[in-house]
Amino acid sequence: MTALLEIRDLKAEIAGKQILNGYDLTVNAGEVHAIMGPNGSGKSTLSYVLSGRPGYTITEGQALLAGADLSQMSVDERAAAGLFLAFQYPLEVPGVATMTFLRAALNAQRKKRGEEEMSSPDLIKRVKELAKILDMDMEMLRRPVNVGFSGGEKKRAETLQMMLLEPKLCILDETDSGLDIDALKVVSNGVNQLRSKDRGIVVITHYQRLLDYITPDVVHVQSAGRIVRTGGKELALELEETGYARYQAEAA
């Protein structure tokens, strides 16, 4: 069976500086993977390389989404193919109404996949349901995208987008940071609703606490632009004790 995400010996750079140094990762449908690693080890870089952010260049290796070479697709094509990145720092989009944005995104993806567009009433209904699950005030969603949202509200909004778009592969880049304890539960609950045998989830996090709520099948340690150790969920507990010192020494 083709893996949902297959990264093979990936090397990538930004502004001429190599950040990913031979990255290998395989995520199968139905699995939840956690990636942990020190600041600056290239976790966000990996997420940007996969989603195709301008400025991030693959110099070697491959990244395949359900067998399709991501480097051959534009950013929006990757999204339509089922890749979703919940940003570490979600952007504010002044002047673009949240509903307009959600409708444009969902229907653009559906159109590209040859599916029927969702009507406005159906969309509003769906967004209301999701807002309820994520304990978000609909009033917030009448504002422009993320404008004036607190850090935690932005993370909820990212989760709402993800739940609406129902991607095949979700990458959550520190979705837990900035969330208070209650919000962490609410957001984790939302993410858990997305767990399914057809979907893969990659959570990038610094904190073992998130993994109490979203139980991973596999935990990876990333250091200096590649994965240096892979284990089960007990690896996260171990990291909590020992920190990253030994991995940073190894990578150096």
Binding site: S51, G52, R53, P54, S74, V75, D76, R78, A79, A80, F84, L85, F87, P90, L91, V93, V96, T100, F101, A104, A105, L106, A108, Q109, K112, Q161, L165
Partner: peptide, 16 residues
Amino acid sequence: FYLMARGICQAEAQSL
């Protein structure tokens, strides 16, 4: 990039 990462094509992102 943010809009495109949600599936909106470049021209549409620019228009929005």
